[in-house]
């Protein structure tokens, strides 16, 4: 057998992800799609945390991509073209905004991003071309040839492809020379600049790559949701994106946000019996996770639970 034992878990995960729409109800597939979109946003946040920049403007750029796509699709441009134009415009706009605040250090960036987030939300809501507070509705579905992607299963595979693309690009980036420079900046800013790493340049590259993927997620979100509303992209909504990384595990840049998004998005479904108190129960559980699992769920599993299971011989032999 050329297969190593270590490969069993990833193969299993991929099979589950591919078979997911056929195993569960259409409603759960819908939650799966939102989870994928949110985990892409969480991945972009983990990317910026690599260089020590907690960005608060993820919802803003997500909305930027979504609104660009929506406006262009309303004007009759095909979905695939808008999914290219939106991210490129987001990178150009990001270059303009971030060149103002990024060279001034982390706190100026943090503050400026909050302003950007609030400002974008206000612009989405109050500019008439963007549909006001009601947003733009009734957008066309993405097309492949003459086939419309309307069923939840097709959209699930579309978004899954985007997620896989994201993971591959991030993995290649993290293992490249750039990724090593980011790691250095994240662990010590002064040390890394003393060994000749251009901190501002690397940080700028980092946030612009993040911008590209966030806006791409926005475009795909429009393809799935077929409507945009300012409330989706509000500052408060953006804050909840930041939770995924912490819940999943701070030191897991790729698995952490995905796992966190999975937990935070699917948990409300299992507390459906709590009815209108669902949001409260979810918040309380996330607070408890933050309080008692400081390394996040993945970190807790790897450091504590795994050794405990192995000691009692309950851990499956193939996964070792």
């Amino acid at each position: 057998m050329t297969w190593k034992k270590k490969r069993i878990l990833p193969v299993f995960v991929v099979l589950i992800l591919l078979a997911f729409p056929f195993l569960v109800s259409q409603f759960t597939v819908q939650i799966g799609i939102t989870t994928i979109i949110y985990s892409i946003l969480g991945l972009a946040f983990a990317l910026s945390m690599k260089v020590g920049l907690p960005r608060m403007d993820i919802a803003a750029w997500w909305g930027f991509g979504a609104y660009t796509s929506a406006v262009l699709m309303k004007a009759g441009v095909s979905f695939w073209l808008t999914a290219l134009i939106g991210p490129v415009l987001a990178v150009i706009a990001g270059l303009f905004f971030f060149s103002i605040c990024l060279p001034r250090g982390m706190m100026a960036f943090f503050v400026f991003c909050m302003i950007l987030s609030i400002a974008f939300y206000q612009v989405f809501g109050s500019v008439p071309v963007l549909g006001g507070w009601g947003g733009i509705t009734g957008l066309p579905a993405p097309m492949i040839g003459s086939h419309e992607l309307v069923t939840k299963t097709e959209l699930y595979y579309l978004c899954l492809a985007l997620l896989v693309f994201n993971i591959v690009v991030y993995y290649l980036l993290y293992t490249s020379k750039t990724g090593r420079a980011w790691n250095a900046i994240g662990s010590s800013l002064k040390l890394s600049s003393s060994i000749g790493i251009n901190v501002v340049k690397y940080r700028m590259v980092n946030v612009l790559i993040g911008n590209f993927f966030i806006a791409l997620a926005g475009s795909f979100f429009v393809g799935y949701y077929r409507a945009v509303m300012p409330a989706i992209f509000s500052f408060q909504a953006g804050l909840f994106i930041l939770i995924y990384l912490i819940v999943g595990g701070f030191s897991y840049s790729i698995a952490g946000p995905i796992f966190g998004a999975l937990i935070v998005n699917f948990m409300p479904e299992y507390f459906r019996f709590t009815r209108e108190y669902q949001s409260i129960v979810t918040s309380i559980i996330v607070i408890l996770i933050l309080m008692f699992l400081p390394m996040g769920i993945l970190g807790w599993f790897n450091l504590k639970a795994k050794t405990w299971l192995v000691r009692r011989k309950w851990y499956p032999e193939v996964l070792r």
């Binding site: 909840f240 939770i243 409260i280 918040s283 607070i287 933050l290 309080m291």
Partner: peptide, 9 residues
């Protein structure tokens, strides 16, 4: 983040 969640509650 904890204070965000507390505000939500």
């Amino acid at each position: 983040l904890v204070s965000v969640l507390f505000a939500n509650i």
